[in-house]
Nucleic acid binder design. Structure first.
Lengths: 361, 361
DNA sequence: GCCGATTTTGCATACGGATGCACTTTGCTG
DNA sequence: CAGCAAAGTGCATCCGTATGCAAAATCGGC
């Protein structure tokens, strides 16, 4: 019988290994390895031969195998709850770019706001990611501790973990929300509405506290409050609830842009209100859509590129073993003034980039 | 000298290995391995002891090491050009979910529409991904061939590669664009505008051909044309160009929603036109924002979940070695009728889900 | 209680590449 | 040209897991 079929050209051949390259180049495996290892000692002559042989065989070092020895996978796990909030695609894109620039790839992981995501993260850790970035997701203190012991740095993004001292990078929630309050107060508003995100989220809580404390300092009444759960539909419902009240608020602060955009939509389409005239709306994040002509959302910016840069910096430090003293890294933003909220008489300045921002008196 | 410092509890200890677990459980490494291998032969007794020991040591199988043996990394490379077009975050999220459901993780990779992305994909292949999904990105035929020989299935998403017969999943570009043309014609429009995406893109070309052919069948004049490069700013400029013409078009077809939304913004804010009244605008994709009250974009839908399901199906088949006869998989959508374009007198039906769609007479 | 059939189990090896070590080659100085 | 330091090289070993094979244990049936 002729069970051994001749290998056709379409036969899926195994990729070339360092061994193959070494044989073709007439050197040892070590030489090949060193050729592809930054800073290893190889003569120019052998390097050339190896490179040539490698190209001929279409050799590509197997990073899985390499990671076994080096204990570095050059992958970073990124957990993000959703991608429908426009903020997070920007974050993911920046993370991918900036991590890519230092040789790391993103192993993506979407949690769907699942509170019980430990089992999934657990699986992610099997991939031996070099670090874990949790964008708006959190993990149990047990798993966090396990990561620490296992030498996997965990960094939270746009969310902080008060109980456990996990390093975190976030916008200046308290300051930003206070700015929003001050801004609306300066514009002459006296009846406020507030739309919360997820009740348990540190982000939402800090923004709520910042907003309310600032209002209190001005002697304002407590704002009306509804919860939008950081979702578009939730924010639509919350907006309806607030605007349907007997004496609806004149000014609305939403804990993120995603919800602020929902509020604008509902105010316009269901209540006939023009944001910036009959109703002021302020958001938080400054996503790209906020600048669209049809929204012109006034919002406190979270400079994604800076925040990600800091995050990547923390990853690098942690990987280099540098001890990180400071735990929570707060990145300042600006209150970007557009048209969705009434403008105060004073305090608006124009940046060199042509953006209008508000400075407290 | 006391060079050997006592290990503090905060010392970053190496994660437990199968060896450690075996020792604690009093069995061999093989037993541990088999316990964590689906369908391997282990007695219930030893399995229990291993599981217990594993839990005690917080053992997690090292997938890197496993992939060395099995030649499976359980990672799929996903290349996407941008995340600012709202369509792609939806795609990435679905891919992550549906691949996750069958045990695969997404190694993300953002190409920025870079035409020369071979070097980057090349790097991605070092990670020995089990498959490569190219969402709106393409790779050279040389690299495609290399992947095929290396046994790495490549699947294109929402983009096809005419020259090389790379398997692809896409919406029904020709049919969808023709539907848009027929719909606008049926609504009584006679002067058309067309906004192209990236000139080289198969997606844009097919939609352009479908649109123009259908118009020709109706005996319409050639539409005015501008190129928006699939970007928001590009589409804004293109819209300005078309609407500034001496006799501007009455109806605009944009090759995706991202650009259609830009067109709506420009029409409203710069030309004072109300979409659906003085100007009809039709898009392609049916992204979430298209349904927002402020846009109400009429558009041909690309059912992301179905498209991704098919894509994942192709990945599974390819990995199982099933030969895939059909190369291009076209997924049907519907023309979702909203308010951004004038409605024809006939043909609009309501789906059980409460969505209005248009059926050609 | 014995024997053959079936599971379990451990041993040894393989996967692909990095690296300490000892050895060889090269380069440079006097 | 000798002598020595520095650079380059190959060998052997290791990383953490899967798996074929043969030995051992278990099982069932008489």
């Amino acid at each position: 019988m002729e069970s051994v079929a001749p290998r056709t050209s379409s036969a899926r051949s195994r990729p070339a290994t360092a061994e193959d390259v070494a044989r073709l180049a007439g050197v040892s495996r070590s030489a090949v390895s060193r050729t592809f290892t930054e800073g290893a000692s190889v003569s120019e002559a052998t390097r050339q031969r190896v490179v040539e042989a490698a190209r001929a065989l279409k050799y590509r070092p197997n990073l899985m195998a390499r990671s076994l020895m080096t204990n570095r996978s050059f992958m970073v796990g990124v957990a993000v709850s959703h991608l429908d909030n426009q903020f997070y695609p920007e974050v993911v894109e920046q993370l991918s770019d900036q991590l890519g620039a230092i040789g790391y790839r993103v192993l993506l992981f979407i949690t769907h706001g699942n509170t019980e995501l430990d089992p999934m993260l657990d699986e992610l850790l099997r991939y031996r990611v070099d670090a874990l970035i949790l964008a708006s997701s959190s993990l149990s203190s047990a798993l966090a501790e396990e990561c620490r012991q296992g030498g996997v740095p965990v960094i939270m993004f746009n969310n902080t973990d008060l109980a456990n001292r996990t390093p975190a990078v976030a916008g200046d929630n308290t300051h930003g929300a206070a700015m929003a309050a001050d801004f609306l107060w300066a514009a002459g508003h006296r009846r406020f509405g507030f739309i919360a995100g997820i009740e348990e989220s540190s982000t939402s809580r800090e923004r709520e506290a910042g907003f309310k404390d600032a209002l209190r300092r001005h002697g304002a009444d407590r704002p009306m409050r509804a919860c939008g759960h950081f979702t578009f539909d939730g924010a639509m419902a919350a907006t309806r609830q607030l605007l349907s009240a007997p004496t609806p608020p004149e000014a609305l602060f939403c804990t993120n842009d995603h919800m602020a955009l929902a509020a604008i939509e509902v105010a316009r389409s269901e209540f006939g209100l023009t944001p910036g005239r009959e109703l002021s709306i302020v958001g938080f994040d400054d996503v790209a859509i906020a600048a669209w002509p049809g929204f012109q959302l006034t919002t406190y910016s979270q400079p994604v590129a800076h925040m990600v840069a800091r995050t990547v910096g923390l990853v690098k430090d942690a990987l280099a073993g540098t001890k990180d003293g400071q735990c929570h890294h707060i990145i300042q933003g600006d209150l970007i003034v557009r048209a969705s909220a009434r403008r105060p008489a004073t305090g608006i300045v124009r940046t060199p980039e042509g953006q209008e921002i508000w400075r407290r008196a």
